[in-house]
């Protein structure tokens, strides 16, 4: 009886974990839409680093660099470019440093997976601790 109960408990935890991983993955796709708006410009500029400032986004900064970037992004959006196209062209030109979203690549695989791995390990330790005696 307890065995059965334990098994279903473990399954439940695994299921919950899978659901959250799925939500995490979905979450990053939701901001993308194709029609151009003022908000979309802000969305993009908020995720770009002002390269000549210290720790400011393009959106926050009033520097010449930031202002010209804002104009550039507006014109790109008017040309019908998508957010992703704009980001990737900027990365090509200025390097990964300019975007605040590190994205998933060979270099950032550990960055994303390490915390999640630690979460799983932590969960395993707790499960072991609670069910040790039974």
């Amino acid at each position: 009886m307890t065995r059965m109960f334990l098994k279903s408990k473990k399954l439940l935890i695994i299921k919950i974990l899978i659901i959250f991983v799925l939500i995490t993955i979905n979450f990053k796709n939701f901001a993308i839409s194709s029609t151009y708006s003022e908000e979309q410009t802000i969305n993009i500029t908020k995720n770009l680093r002002c390269l000549i400032c210290q720790g400011q986004t393009i959106h926050e900064s009033n520097s010449d660099f930031a202002e010209s970037m804002k104009k550039y992004i507006k014109s790109e959006l008017e040309d019908g470019k998508t957010n992703e196209e704009i980001f990737s062209s900027l990365v090509k030109k200025y390097g990964q440093w300019i975007v605040y979203d590190p994205g998933i690549s060979r270099n950032t695989l550990l960055l994303w997976s390490l915390p999640l791995l630690l979460f799983l390990i932590g969960g395993a330790i707790i499960v072991k601790k609670i069910f040790r005696k039974i």
Partner: peptide
């Protein structure tokens, strides 16, 4: 180590923290 510069900003933290805040 690799001489590569990346920025880890709000999108990273939002994606890894927000879903876990619910449970």
């Amino acid at each position: 180590i690799l001489d590569e510069q990346i920025s880890v900003g709000p999108p990273f933290y939002n994606k890894l923290i927000l879903p876990f805040l619910v449970p």
